[in-house]
């Protein structure tokens, strides 16, 4: 494999990843698509889901992304995500515990405002869990 795809993963806070990879599967809002080198230029929003990156050696990395978009141009693929967590950093048990806590928060919330906020956290955690 001589030709590799230039892939960059950027969050608002920093540049998370910048390397040459074989292929990337992006959870586009209108369906998943896989990008290889010399892909036609595309600009797509993303739904929360897993980005799977196949490295040069065939090793696969899974990264959870939420809120953002992907741009493919002649130079490569750029994914801008508001949030990105590496799947290896996610612990199923810890997540389940967090969800339980969040559920309690929603039930205990004293005001509507707090409730909405807790609910948002809970939804977010559930999205994560479904992705694992």
């Amino acid at each position: 494999m001589a030709d590799l795809l230039k892939f960059e993963l950027v969050s608002p806070e920093r540049l998370l990843m910048s390397q040459d990879v074989q292929q990337v599967t992006v959870p586009g809002s209108e369906g998943e698509f896989t990008v290889l080198v010399r892909h036609a230029p595309v600009l797509s929003t993303m739904r929360p889901g897993t980005l799977s990156v196949v490295q040069d050696g065939g090793k696969e990395d899974k990264i959870f992304v939420r809120g953002g978009f992907a741009e493919v141009n002649s130079e490569g693929l750029t994914v801008l995500a508001e949030e990105a967590i590496h799947m290896d950093d996610l612990d199923r048990d810890a997540l389940a515990l967090q969800i339980k806590n969040a559920e309690e928060d929603v039930a205990d919330a004293s005001s509507d405002d707090k409730k909405a906020r807790a609910q948002e956290v809970l939804d977010h955690l559930r999205q994560l869990q479904s992705a694992v």
Partner: peptide
């Protein structure tokens, strides 16, 4: 390259999202 971008969803929706 910009002329041949494929937009998913439509340009307008995309812009509204972004």
């Amino acid at each position: 390259s910009q002329a041949c971008y494929e937009y998913e969803p439509e340009e307008k929706d995309l812009l509204e999202e972004l």
